Computed example of a mutant assay.
Amino acid sequence: MGFPKISFRVCETRHCPLFRYGDVLQISGIAIGMENNGENTFLSTTMVHSPPGRGNCKILNGDLTKVIIEYERADQIPDCMISCSGCTGSIRLEHIRDTPAEPVCTAEAIRLAELAPTLSTFSFFRNIDQGSFSKVLTSFRMKQLKKNEIILRKGEPGGKFYVVLSGQVDILNDAGIPITHLTTGEVFGEMSLICDENIGATVQAASDCQLLYTGQQHFKSLLQNFPALHTYFTRLLARRLTDSNKVRSDDYASGMIGKLEEIPPEALFQTLNANQKTGILTINHLSKGTARCSFRQGALIKASYAGSRGEAAFYEILREKQGRFKFSPGLPPEDFDIPEIGYFMRLLMEGLQRIDERTPPRGTG
């Protein structure tokens, strides 16, 4: 029985020496049924047509021959997944009824295919059955972000669902204090899509990071097609509520008050930096009035004192020996993503050096 050409597309690769994601292979051949002592036996000859420059694989040829033996007609072959038995690597293929004129094979698609084995271990993707996983993955895109970039801002419309591929992102409360840290494999952005509401919390890159994301339409399609995701998101919401309540309680207890006579300015600043504090430091009763400094995760982003701002104000504050300070957790929203004044240790060393230069040597008037 003659077969017309049957098409398969490579949807996943694991170190295959010949084929790449998106390659389309076509099979043509003949399968003949014979009866021998009451048992059916099939003889077949097949030819696998590979993309130009890819070569041929005897192992894959044998695996695909089994498809021709199993089905009597090409139109009886279902949309299915086939795994190559592998040599130094392996591939997975999907049967396609219509061959595209030119397969899409972007660098991003190739990268996602290479990451497929790792992504399949993420808690979110474990709710996608294996037969649908590769197709689902094609609807995701990749995005690179720099440290301190705002990814989502509270109150703005949603529209995307994110998975952390590498790095760390922070969920901030209204005061700009991180209440949750999300790392590789964790997700965010889902609540605004599920509830059709604006974004409920600001999300910021805590380091250089790489994300996967998909749009609202595809996200809702996933919820409809994979019921296990409903349980996944319900448990995720319960866990996050518990975590955020604990952080909120810790925030209320994290205020600091004291005197510069007990802890000098340089030690106070170092403490806030080392503990990655977010909030506003107010120092009263200084020789020239009141000073204010703003910190975001330990980085100095604002400083004002005696008519000076930025570095100049910071250096002046370091000279003070007496005063009362209070640290209040939290920042106004407009300060969430402003740049820091400078690398903290450089500022501190420069300030201390200036103090030394202006200190008279011992024994002089």
Rank of each mutant, 00 (worst) to 15 (best):
M1W: 12
I6A: 10
R9K: 13
R9C: 11
V10E: 05
T13H: 06
P17V: 05
P17D: 10
Y21A: 03
S28T: 14
S28C: 09
G29D: 13
I30L: 08
I32S: 12
N36C: 09
F42A: 01
S44Y: 15
T45L: 07
T46A: 13
H49T: 14
S50V: 09
G55A: 12
N61P: 01
N61W: 00
D63P: 00
R73I: 03
A74L: 00
P78M: 05
C80K: 11
I82S: 03
S85L: 11
S85Y: 04
G86F: 05
G89P: 07
E94F: 06
E94K: 15
H95V: 11
P103H: 13
T106V: 06
E108R: 12
P117T: 07
T118R: 15
F122A: 09
R126F: 04
Q130W: 07
K135H: 11
G158Y: 06
V164P: 03
V164M: 10
I171C: 02
I171M: 03
I171A: 04
D174L: 04
I177A: 01
I177S: 00
E190I: 03
L193G: 03
C195K: 09
T202S: 03
T202N: 01
A206P: 05
S207P: 01
C209D: 08
Q217V: 11
S221P: 02
P227T: 11
H230F: 08
R235A: 12
L236V: 07
N245S: 12
D251Y: 02
G255T: 01
E262M: 12
E266T: 14
E266D: 12
A274D: 09
R296Y: 05
Q297E: 04
Q297N: 09
A306Q: 10
S308Y: 14
R319P: 00
Q322A: 13
F327G: 05
G330I: 02
G342T: 08
F344S: 01
R346H: 10
E357R: 09
R362Y: 08
